[in-house]
Amino acid sequence: MDWSLVWKAVLSLAGFGLLLGAILAVASKRFHVEVDPRVEEILDALPGSNCGACGFPGCSGAAEAVARGEAPVSVCRAGGPDVTEAVARIMGVEAETGIPMVAHIHCRGGKSLSPLRAFYQGVNSCRAAQLVGGGKACPFGCLGLQDCADVCPVNAITFDDEGIRRVNVRRCTGCGLCADVCPRDLIEMVPATAKVFVRCKSQYTGKKATSVCKVACIGCRRCEKACPEDAIHVENGFAVIDYRKCTGCGECATICPTDSIQMWVEREGHPEGGEFVVPEKKKPAKEKSGERETASSRGSRTEEEGGVS
């Protein structure tokens, strides 16, 4: 056996290895790319579901944007306050964690309440149906097709038996994607602590509103007068609640003649986290006389549907 052959081979390979290693070592110094170590940390803190609600390409895109300072630490609305705090810790800033938001659908006029005026046959998408007006009598109500449910990354939007959409607040992460796709602008992001909801966005008022949906907001403004906090106002024919002012007392819901204002009651163990109820109605005529006479005599006729929706 010729040992010199072995030595030659070992030496030449070792030499090669050393040379290439040296090149790599130099290259890694010369062409070093600054990577913010925080990107990895932020990425770990984010949920990792790549829902895209932040508007960045996936969670890694959002993490990079936060590390570069191009996005706020609250970039991940889907993650909620916990994630925001974790990201804020990594970035070394104080996070003003707001109240988590949830989606709310401003319509409860299902099949039996707002009848069909036409039979819609076509693409199973609200935005496509909206192009031809949809089949529902109310031109402002929920069309009950696929769009918001399709876009929801956590399957929080379901049907109720009336054929309109509802949100499971247990699941909803408040990402707001559904609010973007609704062609009728019915989905609003509201604070998770909100208790009172106007469940209608009908721009019709009075008789015209009730002619297309039995539970439409008729724009009577009684809620405006009943609200002790000046938090509810009728704009464009329907009541809108300012959740910065609303204390959730429910005065408006007790006075609403069409039950379009309802209270959200959380229930332990309820699959959707709670349900809407109509509080017991006040008899406005007896409670106060004089200035509210006209309003009450107008409003006391529709009391057909009480209780749980």
């Binding site: 508007g55 706020p72 609250s74 925001t84 964690t97 109240i99 988590p100």
Partner: peptide, 20 residues
Amino acid sequence: RRAQEAANRGSGKEGGDGGQ
């Protein structure tokens, strides 16, 4: 509209706009 809003926000205040 989003870009417009972002531009307005950028010039107004910075960072986390929490739950507003």
